[in-house]
Simulated assay, not measured.
Amino acid sequence: MRVNSLALVFLLLLLIVFTDIFTDNLLSKSIHTLTYISASPIYVAKKNLEQIFEKEYTIVNVKLFDDIATTSEVLSVDSKGIYVKNIKKKGIAIDAINGNLVGFVRKTGNVGYISKWWEEEFPVTIESTDTSIKGQKISIVGYYNKYRIEVPDPTVVISGKVYMSEYMPYGRLLKDFGIAIGEYENGVFKITIPKIPKYIIILEEYEPNGGN
């Protein structure tokens, strides 16, 4: 039975070959046309995708924190983060216009990935707006997690601005310029989620030495 099946397949192949030869390759040309038509949409989609990532992006220099910084253009956004072209080193990403914290670089390369800070967990500094005690602002350490602030000592009553911890890289810099991520009042964190900007600046990571 198996021999008969193989013989039948062989005869069919011979028939196809001879038919193609005597019809001036009409059969092979027809198959080529069909495969070309079916593959064209995939090829066009591939080329368009390559053109998107090979596009030349404008480099914009802006003045931020009294220094000139080079910006990078955002490629796309998903629920957890954003994709940016040509990220060389890890660090934090800030808005190129107003300096607001955007996120943390999690992947470097030709197309890097930056996680949105509000989807992360990290220590924070809560600085009280009350200056009645010796004319000085009071600050305590907290922890940001899932849109909430956890304070180690629940007996401490404090209300004020919430900043990325000043003991993290660039934390003190952002705090000194008043770039907060929200406000803490009566045990409730009022988060300030920034809009995803068109351009960002990467502040490259370094080893903090007692804060920036």
Rank of each mutant, 00 (worst) to 15 (best):
I158P: 10
N86F: 12
I87E: 01
N48A: 07
F22P: 01
K80V: 04
E54K: 08
R172W: 06
N209K: 14
I140P: 01
W118F: 15
A7C: 06
I140G: 02
G91W: 05
Y206Q: 13
K85C: 02
I59E: 15
E183P: 02
E205Q: 07
A7D: 07
P208Y: 07
S40A: 09
K107G: 00
L11D: 07
E185D: 15
V105H: 01
V124S: 02
V62A: 10
D95K: 03
E205C: 03
G210H: 11
T19Y: 15
V9D: 08
K175L: 04
K80A: 07
E120A: 09
S139Q: 12
E50I: 04
G112Y: 01
V60I: 11
L12Q: 06
L34N: 14
K88M: 03
D176Y: 05
R172L: 14
I202D: 00
K47D: 04
Y206D: 13
V62D: 12
I82V: 14
K116P: 00
G142I: 05
N186S: 12
Q136K: 13
N25C: 06
Q136N: 11
L12I: 09
E166D: 11
E54L: 08
K85F: 08
I196H: 02
M164V: 05
L8R: 03
Y113N: 00
V156E: 14
G178I: 05
K107P: 00
L14T: 10
Y43G: 08
N100F: 02
Y199E: 05
A45D: 09
